[in-house]
């Protein structure tokens, strides 16, 4: 068993890497998919940020993405184990189509995060509630401190990968 204080930073790093990689894999920084995401990206670029990173932050805000999938996988695994994750997959799929999002970023986020959380909780002894705190810290690092610098960093990563 790992102590809760030591598990939270490791979970935060895992969640941050997981949903950044999934969002880049589904090509979210390429264009503003929903109409609100386009506007937020252009507003961030006007204030000294980066356009591609701004589009990615706008997509996270205005449609359910891999970050949504990650936090609900953590929450539902904490409540009811694997069965809760199945409920979360169905509900996130419905919610994604309410918000007029065409891709499968949310569902893939739930599936990948559930696999990782199941492996780490049953074999490495992480407490399940550490992933809730870890995912909140990860999304706070991306959007909460300074969206301008975060969009520059995300744009740099996107241009290096593509």
């Amino acid at each position: 068993m790992i102590d809760l204080l030591a598990a939270i930073p490791i979970a935060a790093v895992i969640c941050l890497v997981l949903f950044t990689a999934l969002d880049i894999f589904w090509k979210l920084p390429k264009q503003g998919g929903v109409s609100g995401a386009d506007v937020i990206g252009k507003e961030l670029e006007k204030n000294g940020g980066d356009l591609n990173g701004g589009w990615m932050i706008g997509n996270i805000i205005s449609s359910p993405d891999a970050s949504t999938g990650t936090i609900f996988a953590a929450c539902s695994y904490y409540v009811w184990g694997i069965w809760g994750a199945l409920i979360a997959i169905v509900l996130v799929y419905i919610g994604e189509h309410i918000c007029a999002d065409k891709g499968f970023a949310g569902v893939s986020g739930v599936v990948c995060a559930t696999l990782i959380i199941w492996l780490l909780t049953s074999f490495a002894g992480f407490p399940p509630e550490s992933f809730i705190a870890g995912c909140v810290i990860a999304i706070f690092l991306v959007e909460g401190i300074s969206p301008k610098h975060a969009s520059r960093l995300l744009g740099k990563i996107w241009r290096k990968v593509s």
């Binding site: 609100g36 995401a37 506007v39 805000i61 205005s62 449609s63 359910p64 949504t68 309410i98 918000c99």
Partner: peptide
């Protein structure tokens, strides 16, 4: 999420 999309 739907609300912030509509506002933007």
């Amino acid at each position: 999420t739907l609300e912030s999309n509509a506002i933007a």
